[in-house]
Amino acid sequence: MDVSRVAVLANIPISGQEESKFSQQFAETLTTVELINELNTKNVIPTSQVTGFTNHMRPDRIDKSRILTQVEALSNASHTYQGYFVVPAIFE
């Protein structure tokens, strides 16, 4: 497993020390989880959720009880500008 590549994919900053430590720990974890390969899953349908619901829809109506005001929405942001969130620059 290419730990630095996965760190980039996951957007997780890691130090060189963490990289070597994680690399060893991931190898151990993967060895443990690979035990499931002992079980035959040919023709088995995967389960992603256990409720049995299919196409569980709600009415397409605006529910004001769960809408935050602009002031509330911004209340935890570290950087705001004239009622907006400030995000890191993407373009040079």
């Binding site: 989880v33 499931i36 390969n37 079980l39 899953t41 088995v44 349908i45 995967p46 389960t47 256990v50």
Partner: peptide, 14 residues
């Protein structure tokens, strides 16, 4: 290899 296989074994356990 990992996620899909795990979900299939999940079905077996259910």
């Amino acid at each position: 290899k990992y996620y899909q296989k795990a979900q299939k074994v999940r079905s077996l356990i259910i």
